[in-house]
Design a binder for these strands. Structure first.
Lengths: 344, 344
DNA sequence: GTGAAAGCGCTAACAC
DNA sequence: GTGTTAGCGCTTTCAC
């Protein structure tokens, strides 16, 4: 026995009920000025009474716009990404857009599938933060053939020619290292991420330049590259602390790796920040609550989301070619000083 | 000057190119056995060459199914919810479904709007965890008139008659309090949440029953109700510790409130767990990394997501009325013992 | 102020 | 093995 598929109410049903045509109903529902108030009221009354709900799919097919924005992030459970999403939603919802969120789990294949899913859903825009595992950008470059705006944020590749929104990773890193210098650290190491991602390249560049600026020697042994997960943080720290001249500070390019570093140091009874000072990156929720609290770089995540969404709105509303120079927006980052680096 | 809106390729374009009809192209793309291999190959070659992409909107309009699942959660930045989402995605994607995620930010109005947005997008199912601020369920009850499955998880109201997936909050709380008793705690207080949410009612019931089972007195002063945010945890703990006979253990119905409690106790130099033992609820990411690490209840979040998605798949595939008894699935919870409660 | 008709892109029943 | 045709629900141009 099959459950009866009670059909949903359509404008045609309302039209029949009132002995008018579907076009009249459509116009009435959209407050077209050419429709009399009497008709409008009648239509709206029935619509309300019957729980009529416009079929967004049909409108979308007709208008070519779904009023849906697709967002692909590596994961939603990082404070940074969920705040960006919240910022996007805030602005997008105000303009009548929905947001469709996909998680790539930092996986290249999943990212490709997410893109396909969003294209199939005919989203009006794709907002993307690239997966760690993505080294081939063909699937992203191919998006140029789609006739929709593509915006990259945080983990971007500027050379692809898409608009981007990032924070000033270079300056964030510079400020972090500068702060460590000011705390009296002399041997500052860094945990860095895979080199094909802009954010890690920039953070590394900021690290190097700060060392140079403050006339501290650059030591290749002090640069450990990894995936920057908690375990990577532990392993890398172990490696650093086994050097003949171990560092007295570590600038970690992610909060998770800093957390791993902190764990390893504590397990080995190395005092933070007295023996080794620590700085992370991203201002994740937990950084304020670990012990010692972790100094880190705030990325204005929610604001970044708002700006990304605004950028999309501009791109769709202003199809001026004059405005078509690709925008690369950089937000400034902020050093949050906490106990893990405060020696004075 | 307007950017030329280069139209996307449709099956009609491919049809023209090959001098066949759109139906043939449609069949070829869908591997209909009645189409010759030669035609299929030709069609697929052109489709690939032209970057043809099926218009999901048009298919959806035709078939009445969008292959999209709508999920509304209070927030994505809690480990619990993002893991549930990951579980849902995992199962749903395998069956060709996309997932559209909305955050209600625990706000009643936002929840209503999210529901409307999903209905407009014609999702095939709505999966919902109720916002804290929601006390009127009319907008959810109204969903019965929609002809789609509605599944509630975690924060549910069983009386609404929708299928639900929850963890065993009662037993989780019972085990938490039992553990505190076994650690020698005699005066066990609890931080509880607003009463209209099942999860907090159940956790409170588990607390009371455990006290009774272990012949400990129930003291109303030891039950503090709040929104269970970090600040609430602080305030409530202050209140508890100001009692003539302050508690020697606090079972917190959320990890965030436990974090607040921990902060207040540390600020006031009260030793955890020696003077006051602490247990949280949810096994959020940070609980393993605060100091002392927080004992908590794991909610099998990813598994919960998988089960929710499987439940949806069953509901859509099996429209048997015989199967139509509302399912209320309960998963078992797990006590994770850490330093914050380990006295022995 | 309202109706008629066409069409968005795709699918599927029915023909041959 | 392929074509014809109709229609999913809505919007919109053109009529009157």
């Amino acid at each position: 026995m099959i459950i009866e598929t009670s059909k949903k109410y359509t404008i045609n049903d309302i039209a029949k009920e009132l002995n008018v045509t579907a076009s009249t109903v459509s116009r009435a529902l959209n407050d077209n000025p050419r429709i009399s108030n009497k008709t409008k009221e009648a239509v709206k009354r029935i619509a309300a009474a019957t729980n009529y709900q416009v079929n967004g799919i049909a409108s979308a097919l007709q208008s070519g716009r779904t009023y849906t924005i697709g967002v692909i992030v590596p994961t939603t459970d990082r404070s940074f990404f969920s705040s960006v999403i919240r910022g996007i939603e805030e602005v997008a919802n105000k303009s009548g857009y929905n947001v469709m969120i996909c998680q790539s789990n930092d996986n290249y294949e999943a990212e490709k599938e997410d893109i396909n899913a969003l294209l199939k859903a005919r989203v009006d825009c794709i907002i993307l933060s690239v997966a760690k595992q993505t080294i081939d950008y063909k699937h992203i470059i191919d998006l140029k053939k789609q006739n929709i705006p593509i915006i990259l944020f945080d983990r971007v590749n500027e050379r692809l020619g898409f608009p981007t929104v990032t924070i000033d990773d270079y300056n964030g890193a510079f400020k972090a290292v500068e702060h460590l210098v000011q705390q009296g650290c002399k041997r500052i190491a860094t945990l860095t991420g895979i080199k094909h991602l802009n954010i890690f390249r920039e953070r590394l560049r900021g690290y190097k330049d700060a060392l140079e600026y403050y006339k501290l020697p650059y030591n290749e042994d002090y640069v450990v590259c990894s995936d920057l997960r908690i375990d990577d943080g532990k392993t890398s720290t172990k490696q650093l602390m086994s050097l003949p001249h171990p560092p007295d500070a570590i600038f970690c390019a992610s909060d998770n790796s800093a957390l791993g570093a902190m764990q390893w140091l504590k397990e080995n009874n190395i005092k933070i920040p007295q023996e080794v000072a620590l700085v992370g990156f991203a201002n994740e929720f937990f950084t304020a609550y670990v012990e010692p609290a972790l100094t880190t770089i705030d990325q204005c995540s929610q604001e970044m989301g708002q700006i990304v969404a605004q950028l999309f709105l501009e791109l769709t509303n202003n199809k001026d070619l004059t405005n078509n120079t690709t925008k690369n927006i950089t937000l400034s980052s902020k050093l949050i000083v906490r106990a893990s680096s405060l020696r004075k």
